[in-house]
């Protein structure tokens, strides 16, 4: 009886511990809260300049980077 009680206590402790482990840390939650939408948005902001430039230039013919051609003109 005592052993069963001990095992059930240990079991509930490990379950609680596993649940705690799954909860995100403060730094991560703050990071998620930095953005009004998905945190993926920061990647867009990081690449924004290039993403703005590329469609204006259009697809590069024969695998060439037309950015260079634009720049050299």
């Amino acid at each position: 009886m005592r052993a069963a009680l001990l095992w059930s206590l240990l079991g509930s402790c490990s379950l609680a511990s596993a649940a705690d482990d799954e909860l995100p840390g403060m730094e991560f939650l703050e990071y998620l809260g930095l953005w009004e939408e998905s945190d993926e948005i920061w990647m867009l902001m990081d690449e924004q300049v290039l993403a703005e430039v590329v469609p204006q230039i259009g697809p590069a013919p024969h695998g060439e980077d037309s950015v260079e051609k634009e720049d050299e003109s």
């Binding site: 867009l44 690449e47 924004q48 430039v53 590069a60 695998g63 980077d65 260079e68």
Partner: peptide, 24 residues
């Protein structure tokens, strides 16, 4: 419009994206 441009950029081949980044 910016999001669409970004999607377009992300669809480019990785090598090309890298070259454009370097060039820029």
């Amino acid at each position: 419009r910016i999001r669409e441009n970004f999607r377009h950029f992300r669809q480019l081949h990785r090598d090309r994206r890298e070259r454009l980044r370097d060039r820029y």
